[in-house]
Design a protein around this nucleic acid. Structure first.
Length: 445
RNA sequence: GGUCCCAUCGUCCAGAGGCCUAGGACACAGCCCUUUCAAGGCUGCGACGCGGGUUCGAACCCCGCUGGGACCGCCA
């Protein structure tokens, strides 16, 4: 069973949606497989009968797909080493447990089967990330006792335990590198004991640093959004979450913003760091903004559209190219797709503008002057933002007033916001008729 | 209580004995640009936890301390 093909796996238990920590682990496995040209395997660890569900299994798979992590073998794809669902491998676990029983390496306790831990064994291992980890079997004590703790391998309900099933599966699936969270370091020596008892080759281990919340505690629900879907719904793009998570515990030489392909090319397991990393939402925002800026206009539109639709805006009544160009005008504004959608709603419809601003704060005595200004600007025959601005500047200079005092009312009439791209660019994109319509509505023309 | 792991700016990473008066990014502050807000440009703030060694020389090696964390389930 030894060629040097890299085979790695992500083995979630379907007891919840794919969360950030799991996504991080899956991501590093995927990176290593793609970097080496090896195989990435998805295995479902559903031996916890009460908590595992098919729905969660599905959710995890679609979470990975959203993320852009494709697997080569798995419950839905098959492969040469299936089944890929632990609940379908019960006979296999039973078979090896019986072997252990026959050889006197395990014993029964009721319906359970327990693996006997012998004292004095060196169960140290070399971790690709953490280096040499020294452990003796004598250290595997029961809590508050000097008694050695044997390892349950088959539970009373007939299901295998994690520490046992993971060994059988990784060995039989020819996993070359076990890449998982650092919280598994202390499980590793126990698993090594089982590999040895069964005569299996021990794979290479690479443990990944934990992801912590702002309070430096292991990331959990308390820290807010933890499932990858929550990030999708908040308007983060998969490429951004991928990029951000890849940077937790690893760094690509000189650039921080990269694509999946670039990351896969640059990735090195040996360069993974050991220190637990704090999840910093500010950095995620920044990375998402960078990716948003780099998108092709039509692709960007496809990211924003769902959010506009969710806001009940008449997206279909506009040309895609026109909408995409509107978003290009938004350049750099908004850190998430959701924000960008919200900040640009006035392009799609006049309704949200009216809802935000009623124009009442423009006093009657200011209107004549504003009307004069708007009419002057609108009289410009060449409908380009350069020309409009030129005309506007000439007008304010001639009247000895400040551009700001005239640009802001225009901005409000067109967008209903105090913030937007350059007003003249917005005006040009909306079109002369639409600009007139909006100004007329506010009785400013 | 036991075993194991970790320790560079607030955060994420560079740094694998001299290139470090410690570098980049995010965040933060200021300035520039400017019709607004962003973006962009520039500047600033800001760290090798402590104590011992080893060495001509230590952020990097060793020991101790302190501080974090993980695990010790018939959960995974």
């Amino acid at each position: 069973m030894s060629n040097n093909e890299v085979r790695v796996r992500f083995a979630p238990s379907p007891t919840g949606a794919l969360h950030i920590g799991g996504g991080h682990t899956a991501l590093f496995n995927w990176l290593w497989a793609r970097h080496t040209g090896g195989k990435f395997i998805l295995r479902i660890e559903d031996t916890d009968l009460v908590r595992s569900t098919k729905e969660y299994e599905q959710t995890i798979m679609s979470g990975m797909t959203w993320f852009g992590l494709d697997w080569d073998e798995g419950p839905d794809k098959g492969g040469d080493y299936g089944p890929y669902r632990q609940s379908e491998r019960l006979d296999i676990y039973r078979k090896y447990a019986n072997k252990l029983l026959d050889e006197g390496k395990a014993y029964k306790d009721g319906d359970a089967i327990i693996f006997k831990v012998e004292p004095g064994l060196d169960i140290s291992f070399d971790d690709i990330v953490y280096g040499k980890i020294n452990v003796m079997s004598d250290g595997l004590k029961e809590q508050n006792s000097d008694k050695l703790k044997d390892i349950v391998i088959i539970k009373s309900d007939g299901m295998p335990t994690y520490n046992y099933a993971v060994v059988i599966d990784d060995a039989l699936m020819h996993i070359s590198h076990v890449i998982r969270g650092e919280d598994h370091i202390s499980n590793t020596p126990k698993q090594i004991l089982i590999y040895r008892a069964l005569g299996f080759d021990v794979p290479q281990f690479a443990h990944l640093p934990m992801i912590l919340g702002k309070d430096k505690k292991k990331l959990s629900k308390r820290h807010g959004a933890t499932s990858v879907y929550e990030y999708r719904d908040m308007g983060y793009m998969p490429d951004s979450v991928f990029n951000f998570l890849a940077l937790l515990g690893w760094s690509a030489e000189d650039h921080e913003i990269f694509t999946r392909a670039e990351a896969a090319e640059l990735f090195e397991l040996k360069r993974v760091t050991r220190k637990p990393a704090v999840f910093d939402p500010d950095k995620l925002n920044y990375i998402n903004q960078e990716h948003l800026k780099r998108l092709e206009p039509m692709v960007r539109l496809s990211m924003i559209k769902p959010f506009w639709e969710a806001m009940n805006l008449p997206v279909a009544s506009h040309d895609d190219k026109w909408l995409a160009d509107a978003l290009t005008l938004m350049a750099g504004r908004g850190q998430t797709a959701k924000e960008m959608a919200e900040f640009s709603d006035y392009f799609v419809s006049f309704e949200p503008v009216k809802a935000r601003w009623d124009g009442k704060d423009i006093s009657e005595d200011r209107r004549p002057s504003l009307k004069e200004f708007f009419n002057a600007v609108l009289s410009e025959p060449e409908w380009t933002h350069e020309k409009l601005e030129e005309r506007a500047r000439a007008w304010v200079e001639e009247h000895g007033v400040k551009m700001k005092d005239y640009a802001m009312p225009l901005r409000f009439a067109l967008t209903g916001m105090k913030v937007s791209p350059g007003v003249f660019e917005v005006a040009v994109h909306l079109g002369r008729d639409e600009v007139k319509r909006r100004l007329e509505f506010y009785n400013l023309i």
